[in-house]
Amino acid sequence: MGKDVVIEVRNLNVNRSGALVIKDANFEVLKGDYVGIVGPNGGGKTTLLLAILGQIPKASGTIRLFGKSVESFDEWERVAFVPQDAINFDANFPLSVRELVSLGRLGRKKIGRRLGKIDWDEVDSALEFMGLSEVADRRIGELSGGQKQRMFVAMALVRDPDVIILDEPVAGIDAVTQEKFYQKMSDLNQKRGITIMMVSHDLSAVFCRMSKVICVNKEVNVAEIRPDVDIEGVLRKAYGEHFHFVFHRHECKGEFKA
């Protein structure tokens, strides 16, 4: 029996400002997948994510989340999204890290509900998992870039989602912090079984840690990350034939998924 399908995209076309940005996309994301979305700037990665999340209309095709059409999908608590610009918030906003993460417990089915002990336990557990317990009472504006990203993942985690979708979560963050972040996401995927979809320009991280790659440059090509798959060929379709990609799988420190 096959794995549960989390996201199913069929014959998807998406226009933005009158131009075709996603052309005839077809792919599936299965439960437990760790998916990297790569492609050149302006290629349509964010557009694809926003279409999947029902935030922008599609021109044609179907998007199904957990078997339901995105138009009628109403279990958004199962899906957590960390947008590209999440960390660019007002640094003076009066919220502690713990307070912000607790907002992740809100949702359509919990309107007006007081947060109880279970909620706060979830918040503290997520903060601990993301290594933020020591800064839990600090104001959100006082955190470093890497801490802010982990804070938003903690906010996503307290929703107890089945899938977390992240749009360039480590953009502008130093290499060491990026590596720690990818490690945390691998832990989430492997230890908690959470399906992860992440836009990233770090091709090494994608091929060392993730199980599937979606290459987006108007056209969408998908490949399992396995030794027998011609990853370079898939990437060339997104980035262009004149690019050469050299992967040193031995540098993946034993974390290559295949």
Binding site: L53, Q55, D74, W76, E77, F81, P83, A86, F89, F93, L95, L100, S102, L103, G104, L106, G107, R108, K109, I111, G112, L115, R159
Partner: peptide, 21 residues
């Protein structure tokens, strides 16, 4: 509703995605 209002005030788009009306 102060928690929902706080979430909307902090990030209106994010609040919509969380299913807050």
């Amino acid at each position: 509703f102060h928690k929902e209002l706080l979430a909307i005030t902090f990030d209106e788009r994010g609040a919509r995605m969380m299913g807050i009306p």
